[in-house]
């Protein structure tokens, strides 16, 4: 690496410049992700936080500035009223709980479906493994939006599934599948399945075959072996996969919007409504901040669980 830097002139100059500023390779390695987080997470977060304590107004942008200057006087006005709304109206609380519940059950379903797949891939021969992993990742090559639209085509009343069922005569009235919570679960499970499979696979592929043999040798039939050995040892993978599904699913907007019915009360939709229909940016921001805080708690719980499992 350093050899490359030495040879390429622009890199050499950059390195010299950075060194003159007291920045060395190691500092840079840490600085880059830090900077990334700063620019793409912290700054937007602060902007949203600022918005959440502003007052809405008919203006462009539609809120009053926090800081007002009048000659030498400077007034900072923070409005926490927006957070008050969140508790005034049970809608928000309900939306939070609905979102968390939906995300939780989606994650559980994803786990139930993803685990056997990950297990199967991890236990396949090496050549086959790469093919199967490829198949898991393949959908990412198509736009997520297109894939969700494709589901609309499958689920609608005169869609593929209903037409097939009608044709076979299993049903004589089309099933209403689109715009239901069922469709939302389906969409989320479908979309997030790879995020469950990949960490589970990464974990299961490391599982020492000798442990399974040891269990069998000690009298463990396949099922007890799974529950006493495989499952506990794959806990880090389960938690990682669960987090990767659960956390983004809470704030999911596109899937409930496209596949969900009117009563799919996801917090993402409430936020959208607040922002677009109500053009109340401060309240929308307050919803977002509250969502973040509400999310931090389950994430912390999962993180601690993960750390504990990994320590063992």
């Amino acid at each position: 690496m350093s050899a490359v830097i030495e040879r390429v002139a622009p890199l050499r100059w950059t390195a010299a410049l950075l060194a003159a500023l007291g920045l060395r390779g190691r500092t840079l390695v840490i600085a880059v992700p830090m900077l990334w987080l700063l620019i793409f997470f912290l700054v937007p977060f602060l902007v949203v936080a600022k918005l959440s304590v502003s007052e809405p107004a008919i203006a462009m942008p539609p809120y009053l500035p926090l800081v007002e200057r009048d000659g030498a006087r400077m007034t900072i006005s923070l409005s926490f009223e927006n957070f008050g709304y969140l508790f005034d109206d049970p809608l928000y609380i309900k939306a939070y709980f609905f979102s968390i519940r939906l995300a939780f059950f989606s994650a559980v379903l994803t786990l139930l479906i993803g685990y056997p797949i990950a297990y199967y891939i991890a236990r396949s021969s090496e050549a086959r493994r790469s093919v199967l992993l490829m198949l898991v990742i393949l959908p990412f090559w198509t736009s997520f939006l297109l894939r969700v639209y494709a589901w609309q085509g499958f689920l609608r009343s005169n869609g593929v599934i209903n037409n097939f069922l009608l044709w076979t005569g299993i049903i004589d009235q089309p099933l209403v599948m689109l715009q239901t919570n069922f469709a939302v679960y389906l969409g989320i499970v479908y979309t997030y399945l790879p995020f469950m499979i990949l960490p589970l696979y990464a974990n299961l592929v490391k599982l020492d075959e000798a442990l399974l043999e040891a269990s069998a040798d000690l009298g463990g039939r396949p099922l007890p072996t799974f529950f006493h050995v495989t499952l506990p040892l794959s806990m880090p993978g389960i938690i990682a996969g669960f987090m990767l599904v659960f956390v983004p699913a809470i704030g999911e907007f596109v899937i409930p919007e496209l596949l969900g019915g009117p009563d799919t009360l996801m917090i993402g939709r409430v936020l959208w409504n607040e922002f677009f229909s109500n053009r109340d940016w401060p309240t929308a921001s307050a919803v977002a901040i509250a969502m973040l805080i509400a999310l931090v708690i389950p994430i912390m719980i999962l993180r601690t669980a993960q750390q504990r499992v990994e320590e063992e």
């Binding site: 000798a210 442990l211 043999e213 040891a214 269990s215 069998a216 040798d217």
Partner: peptide, 20 residues
């Protein structure tokens, strides 16, 4: 006969102790 049906036990080279 599956391993769990045999009157044998094995001590593995890697010991294969359950780490958890």
């Amino acid at each position: 006969k599956a391993p769990y049906e045999r009157p044998t036990n094995m001590m593995f080279q890697s010991y294969a102790l359950f780490p958890h």
